[in-house]
């Protein structure tokens, strides 16, 4: 495979390339092999197979055109999972951005121990998603869970309250775990931008008699706008990819099931491979489209003056 991959590229150039060229091709060949075999070929295969009927339980893989795609339109379960995913995206992005920017502004205000606070804040992001999810499963536990324990200690009637019996509270519970894990990313990105704001801008605002709130609204926020957009892109893509939290906390429950869990179930439990692939293609496109919208907005709004 390596011979084919590097040979193709070399042929275009013809004979007579120098030692650097050979070395360059040699050094990138592991990347080319890995990416072609494990990303580009499977990617193309996903698109191709989504136009066929691929099911390990059925013989043959006849071409079915866009049948897998048109079937999505009448798939009621799928519609529910899309609704859930969009709910996760909206809730998670709002929470991560609003709370994340506030948290970054807070950390930006302290001087002593900033590194330690930052390390503590990043920790949830660094942990495996499923470990976060089982931690919160234990916190949400009706009997001995921490959440009900705190609420009861505050005198509220939450003994043995089951958070996953009701769709709204279940969705919020899953979102909270996701936000707990992903908000550090927003904080790091926005905090870095805040640290890059020159001190003399605040000095000027102070001389003009601005209050702290005005400084935040008129100096800080406009200058970290592009960082917020980057953070929003990340938050959106991550919320789209929500899987671990929903799967561990609520299993296959349709009330909380995001699109990604739906793909997993259709593919690896119902063994409808090609339908799963068509779903993957659609989710990928939607995710790319949303990222693109953000990127374009940032480029339009940020001028280098």
């Amino acid at each position: 495979m390596s011979v084919v991959a590097s040979g193709n590229v070399a042929n275009k150039r013809g004979v007579g390339f120098n030692a650097d060229t050979t070395l360059g091709l040699l050094l990138v060949s592991p990347i080319v092999i890995t990416m072609v075999a494990l990303v580009f070929y499977p990617m193309g295969r996903t698109v191709w197979d989504s136009l066929h009927r691929v099911n390990p339980m059925q013989v043959g893989t006849p071409f079915v055109g866009l049948e897998n795609y048109s079937r999505m339109l009448s798939d009621a379960q799928l519609a529910t999972t899309w609704g859930n995913t969009l709910t996760y995206v909206v809730l998670a992005v709002l929470a991560e951005i609003i709370l994340g920017v506030l948290a970054a502004a807070l950390i930006n205000q302290i001087k002593t121990g900033r590194q330690w606070v930052l390390a503590a804040v990043i920790l949830p992001w660094a942990l495996p998603g499923v470990v976060n999810s089982v931690i919160w499963l234990w916190i949400y536990q009706p009997g001995a869970g921490l959440l009900n324990g705190i609420l009861v200690a505050l005198g509220l009637p939450f003994e043995n309250h089951v958070w996953f019996n009701d769709r709204t509270s279940a969705i919020i519970a899953v979102t909270v775990v996701h936000v707990w894990r992903m908000m550090p990313l927003t904080i790091v990105i926005v905090l870095a931008a805040m640290q890059g704001i020159p001190a003399h801008l605040y000095e000027a605002a102070r001389i003009d008699g601005a209050t702290r709130v005005q400084m935040f609204g008129l100096v800080t926020l406009p200058l970290v706008r592009s960082a917020i957009a980057v953070a929003m892109t990340n938050a959106t893509v991550n919320a789209f990819n929500l899987f671990d939290e929903a799967w561990v906390l609520a299993g296959a429950s349709l009330e909380t099931r995001p699109v990604l869990v739906q793909i997993y179930l259709e593919t690896f439990q119902n063994l409808r491979f090609s339908y799963g692939m068509a779903l993957s293609v659609v989710v990928t496109l939607v995710s790319l489209l949303i990222s693109l919208v953000y990127v374009l907005r940032v480029y339009r709004n940020t001028r280098f003056d």
Partner: peptide
């Protein structure tokens, strides 16, 4: 930009 699940099945 390509999510893992887009290549998972192949």
């Amino acid at each position: 930009a390509i999510p893992a699940y887009a290549v998972l099945i192949p």
